[in-house]
Simulated scan of single mutants.
Amino acid sequence: MWTAVILTGIVAAVTIGGLQSIARTAEKIVPAMAIIYCASTLGFLIIFYDKIPAAIIEIMTDAFTPTAATGGFLGATVMVAMRNGIARGVFSNESGLGSAPIVAAAAKTKWPAEQGLISMTGTFIDTIIICTMTGLVLVVSGLWNGDMNGATLTQGAFLQAFPNFGSMMLMVGLVLFAFTTILGWNYYGERCCEYLVGVKGIMPYRIIFIMLVACGAFLKLEAIWVLADIVNGLMAIPNLIALLGLSGVVVSETKAYYAHLKEEKMQTRVTGRISETFKE
C-alpha cells in the first residue's frame, strides 16, 4: 500500500505538478545505477565463475527438450520457449513496438539513418548484455527452481554473493529504473494522445495514467506479464505493418547515409593527400 501511495504521489507531482527536477535527478542517477548493476552482476559471475559453463549448457539443453514444457513435445516446447523469450525480449528493449522512436524522433539530426543506428544500440545493451547477465545469475544461483519470482528471485540470487548489501543495492536500482520507465511511458502516451485528440486530451490521460500506477502495486506478477504481453502485441501489430510499408524508405535513407559516409571518407583522403603534397 505504501509503495503505491509514495510512487503515485511522486509520479503525480512530476506529471501534473511539473516537478521536473525529480525526473532530471533520476535521469542523472540511472546511468550510474546501470553501471553499478552491470558491475555487480559481473562480480557475481566472477565469484561463481566455475558454475557458468554448466549454467549455459543447462539453458541451451532445457530450451530444446520436452522437459521444458509440462506434457509437451519438442515442437510445442520450442514454440513456448520462443514465445516467452520474444515476449520478454520485446518487453526489455521495446523493439518493434514503435515506442522508442517517439523519443528518437525528437532528436535533431541531419540523417535519420544515423539516429536509427544509435537507437539500435539500446536493444543490444538491454537484451544481449544486461538480460543475458541477469539470466546467467539466476541460473547459476539455482533459485529459479524455487517458488520465488521477479525481483524477489533476483534479490535472492544477489544475496548469495553480496549478503550484506545485495538486497539494498538491487532495491535502489529497481526503484530508479522503474520510476524513470514510468515517466518515459507517460511521455509516450502523452504524445500519442496529443496526436489523436489534441492538447485537450493530455490532462485526462495523465489522470488515468496516475490511477493505473496506483493500481499496479496491487496486481499479481503473473497478471502484469499477461497484461503487458497483450498491450505490447496491440502496439506491435500496427507498427510492424507500418514498418513493412515504410521498408523502402528505410532502405533508401540507409543507402543515402552510407553513401554520404563513403563520400566523406574519400574527401578526407583527398584532402590529406593534397596537404602532404604541399608539405613536400
Rank of each mutant, 00 (worst) to 15 (best):
G156W: 05
G156V: 11
G156T: 08
G156C: 08
A157E: 10
F158L: 14
F158P: 09
F158T: 09
F158E: 06
L159V: 13
L159A: 05
L159R: 06
Q160T: 08
Q160M: 13
Q160A: 04
Q160D: 04
Q160L: 11
Q160N: 13
Q160W: 06
A161E: 02
A161N: 01
F162Y: 15
F162K: 00
F162V: 03
F162P: 03
F162I: 02
P163V: 02
P163E: 03
P163G: 01
N164M: 14
N164C: 08
N164F: 14
F165A: 11
F165M: 04
F165N: 13
F165L: 12
F165G: 05
G166W: 00
G166K: 02
G166Q: 03
G166L: 03
G166V: 02
G166D: 01
G166F: 01
S167E: 15
S167C: 04
S167A: 15
S167L: 13
S167P: 03
M168R: 10
M168K: 12
M168E: 09
M169Y: 09
M169R: 05
M169W: 08
M169P: 03
M169C: 00
L170N: 06
L170I: 12
L170P: 00
M171K: 07
M171N: 14
M171Q: 13
M171H: 12
M171Y: 12
M171L: 14
M171R: 04
M171D: 14
M171C: 15
V172C: 14
V172P: 05
V172M: 14
V172E: 10
V172T: 14
V172K: 12
V172H: 04
V172G: 07
G173A: 04
G173P: 01
G173W: 03
L174W: 07
L174H: 06
L174M: 12
L174I: 14
L174N: 02
V175Q: 06
L176E: 04
L176Q: 00
L176N: 05
F177S: 08
F177Q: 08
A178S: 11
A178K: 12
A178W: 06
F179K: 05
F179G: 13
F179H: 10
F179L: 15
F179R: 14
F179N: 11
F179A: 13
F179D: 14
T180E: 13
T180N: 12
T180L: 09
T180G: 06
T180D: 06
T180S: 15
T181R: 06
T181P: 06
T181N: 07
T181S: 15
T181C: 11
T181V: 14
I182L: 15
I182R: 12
I182N: 04
I182H: 10
I182F: 03
I182P: 08
I182S: 10
L183V: 02
L183M: 08
L183A: 01
L183R: 02
L183D: 00
G184V: 05
G184M: 05
G184W: 01
G184Y: 04
W185M: 05
W185A: 12
W185D: 07
W185C: 01
W185Y: 09
W185F: 13
W185P: 05
W185H: 06
W185E: 08
N186L: 10
N186V: 00
N186E: 13
N186T: 08
N186G: 15
N186M: 09
Y187P: 01
Y187M: 01
Y187S: 12
Y187Q: 07
Y187R: 11
Y187K: 11
Y188V: 02
Y188C: 02
Y188F: 03
Y188A: 01
G189D: 01
G189P: 02
G189T: 00
